[in-house]
Design a binder for these strands. Structure first.
Lengths: 275, 275
DNA sequence: ACCTGAACACCGTTCAAGT
DNA sequence: ACCTGAACACCGTTCAAGT
């Protein structure tokens, strides 16, 4: 009874892997993890399931492709891999939220405007901002990680962070550690934030972040003070915090650790720190 | 045709939420995320689905309870919350892998044996070791996070880390940042490692980690050198790295960042650092 | 209060058949 | 080579009925 093929294809364009992945991303954006269904997909693309299975092996591969496409866009890459979206114009728009992404109004730092530190922050915020339009991203990243740990997406993130770690002057023996720490922090913080955003939307679609965080910290304040003294102590602090600021502070924390631990001076690259 | 109720209940113990959660953990451990099914559960518990639904609202709640039980055990807590396993003996054993968990043979550090730093490392390794028996844990943590960001599990981890952050002497204004950074790193690194373990087991059940890491770094070396110069450069380094050492190095990196950024000296707690 | 189990709606996937 | 669509196996969940 509902209208079939809600959005007719703009041209007589044949079905392609790119179009399928594009539709998958749209469904995920619109209705979350549960919104991507082969039936919803066939309706949207006006085909049968068999047609989709001719281009894509199964649902996991489709999810991986959707995840890879969004991450690639967030990292501003035009990759040659097959798991990419066809329309870079549309993806570029996705990576650009309402507010300016560029780290314009940032606290005064001692580095030059385009230092490796700044580039790391830019990469991190690229992913951070991508989850605003794609709240399903962190969960899917985790799922893909559990399916194939060194699939296509993780290496891409690792590579872009790693290059800046190298540019930072970290001795080669610590590249892996430093890059891993940064990537792990970014993925962890990004996931937490996606969850906050999603639940803020769910609880009250038109309520703003401040109100949601107030409610969340209220929930924290309701915890047993004997079991959760620390959380109760930071509840007020959480209510007032700004997510982006917090995210940046965490990155700078890791960057400081890398600098302090792996960039002592110019010599003693041969003697790694004690711990 | 298979034997029903493979493990008959030891006593005439009635069905309870605890028994259901326990069986859920066993199924997850045995067959992963896809292994937990209401049909498998009813077979194992020798009941019908309706009986389970009387004790548990739905599958998500069951997964959350299983996740919470394993995390609580890993943190060595006996919580009063309902989402816990009934048999602490069995859970205590789960938290204790074949090798000693206690940070006995660690690199020489400048802190006292039971410093907050050491306690943070112990908490982190508690979670780290838990995923050896429960590879599904990180993914489920991510899923629960996306379902209810400040559910029961995250606060528990946040609380135990946060207390040590406070004990570290971090000024109150930075508690949230410091604890968040640690938790995010731990969750991120833990997830990565669970993925590595799982895929190592999948690729070849009897092959050891070294061989698997060799294969993984081979895969890295197969990447396009133009697109992935950094990953290619660290591929060899990855082959030789020890996971636990790497995990610890990351934690120490964050700890160093916290110390350097938030513990400058005793005064100037009123003037936060520039960045 | 606690449990049973048939039944329902929905899902991913397959495959013989078309063009 | 590419697509169709009925059909299959399986899943989470419900609910009238039992004790």
């Amino acid at each position: 009874m509902a209208t079939r093929a809600r959005r007719s294809q703009r041209r007589t364009e044949a079905l392609s892997r790119e179009r399928i992945v594009e539709a998958a991303v749209e469904l995920l954006d619109a209705a979350g993890e549960g919104g991507l269904t082969f039936r919803a997909l066939t309706e949207r693309l006006a085909t049968g399931p068999g047609a989709i299975y001719w281009h894509v092996a199964n649902k996991d591969e489709l999810l991986d492709a959707a995840t890879g496409a969004v991450v690639a866009a967030a990292l501003s890459l035009d990759s040659t891999e097959p798991a990419e979206l066809a329309e870079p114009a549309e993806l570029a728009e996705l990576a650009e939220p309402t507010e300016p992404v560029e780290p314009a109004d940032r606290a005064e730092s001692a580095q030059s405007p385009d230092s490796p530190q700044d580039k790391i922050r830019a990469i991190a915020f690229g992913l951070y901002d991508a989850i605003e339009d794609h709240p399903w991203l962190p969960t899917q990243l985790a799922l893909q990680l559990s399916r194939s740990p060194w699939g296509s997406v993780t290496p891409r993130i690792f590579e872009s962070i790693g290059r800046q770690v190298r540019a930072l002057g970290v001795p080669e023996g610590h590249w892996f550690t430093a890059a891993s720490a940064l990537v792990h922090y970014i993925l962890g913080a990004t996931g937490q934030n996606a969850a906050n955003n999603a639940s803020a939307r769910t609880l009250a679609p038109d309520v703003d972040r401040a109100e949601f965080l107030g409610a969340a910290s209220k929930a924290w304040e309701g915890l047993d003070p004997d079991d959760y003294p620390f959380i109760r102590a930071v509840a007020a602090q959480m209510r007032e915090h700004d997510d982006r600021e917090q995210f940046l502070a965490g990155i700078d924390l890791v960057l400081t650790g890398i600098t302090a631990l792996h960039l002592p001076s110019e010599q003693d690259r041969t003697t790694p720190p004690a711990t």
